[in-house]
């Protein structure tokens, strides 16, 4: 009997599992796009670009936001709600800053390097791939906004850590995805 109940306890929450499967499918989408990039980069008329410097800024921002997200999650589990509020708010803000930085990056590429949507080189792929990544980050920011609103203005007290854990998992995922994409764009030439 005890063995059974132990196994029960170890069982992953269905929502969290669902999140992991969803992450797997998002990974496949970016795997498809980056393999298309590799195929295309070996063909004629491939055009390289210089990665705008601001993308390094956004990298730092999203790395820090992962850290704040983790602290928020830990504070929530320890029921230190004041600290939780501070860190969930800062994660939300950092996420928004990341989106703004990415948009600035796109604009710089467009205006300073004259990379438009004509053609099919690294620049056009960058708009599509980073663009889709920003959309996924945007989805995460919306989720954070919901948590943030609940934490500050919610009437009902939240005790289950599952929603925060889900948000944290997703947030670390978009962070890791960004690191992968950045390294990919630096590496594959």
């Amino acid at each position: 009997m005890d063995i059974v109940s132990n196994q029960q306890r170890k069982k992953i929450h269905p929502r969290k599992f669902t999140m992991w499967v969803a992450i797997a499918s998002i990974i496949m989408m970016f795997a498809g796009l980056t393999s298309a990039y590799i195929v295309k980069s070996n063909q004629a008329a491939w055009q390289e670009i210089e990665l705008p410097k601001i993308f390094w800024g956004s990298t730092i921002v999203i790395l820090v936001s992962s850290l704040t997200m983790q602290i928020a999650l830990r504070s929530f589990k320890q029921r230190e709600m004041r600290q939780y509020r501070v860190f969930i708010a800062s994660t939300f803000l950092l996420g928004s800053v990341f989106i703004i930085f990415q948009c600035i990056g796109f604009l710089q590429l467009w205006e300073q390097q004259q990379v438009t949507l004509k053609g099919s080189g690294a620049g056009q792929f960058l708009y599509v791939i980073f663009g889709l990544h920003v959309l996924h980050v945007f989805g995460g920011v919306i989720a954070l906004l919901v948590m943030f609103t609940r934490a500050f203005f919610g009437k009902i007290k939240m005790y289950s850590p599952v929603p925060v854990e889900l948000a944290a998992t997703y947030w670390h995922f978009v962070d890791a995805l960004w690191i992968y994409l950045l390294i990919f764009f630096l590496w594959v030439r």
């Binding site: 496949m28 989408m29 298309a36």
Partner: peptide, 13 residues
């Protein structure tokens, strides 16, 4: 779950 996202990438392009 593993193959439909790839179609989506193709369709986006």
């Amino acid at each position: 779950v593993l193959s439909f996202p790839v179609l989506l990438s193709g369709l986006i392009l």
